[in-house]
Amino acid sequence: MARAVVTVPARATRGEIVEVKTLAQHPMETGFRRTQTGELIPRDIIRRFTCTYNGTEVYRVELHPAMSANPLIAFSTIAAETGTLAFQWVGDNGYSVTETASISVE
């Protein structure tokens, strides 16, 4: 099954801006490539990525075929309170992967 990796600092001070890095395992087939016999390889990409912090959406990405395989998405968020960051990738052919990371804020 498809895997995803996220990097979130384990602890942070309140109000600090923390870096979040995410990587999902996916070929991101563009739908423009052809096989050796000339048939078009159907599109198969991740369409949407969302990051929620204790239930509040902080970052949402719409992906298009021009994103590289195994899409890397790095962004930042404010460490508001101790809790979990939930990540979700949704794509073609029922692709759906979720991942969580906890952060303790003092």
């Binding site: 563009t30 912090y53 970052y59 075929p65 899409p71 998405i73 930042s76 404010i78």
Partner: peptide, 23 residues
Amino acid sequence: LPDVVSVRLGPRAGRATLATRVR
């Protein structure tokens, strides 16, 4: 296709940044 990526964010992001890899 002209579109590469679109991001929706708000004040909770802290900084308006995006780092990724594209084709």
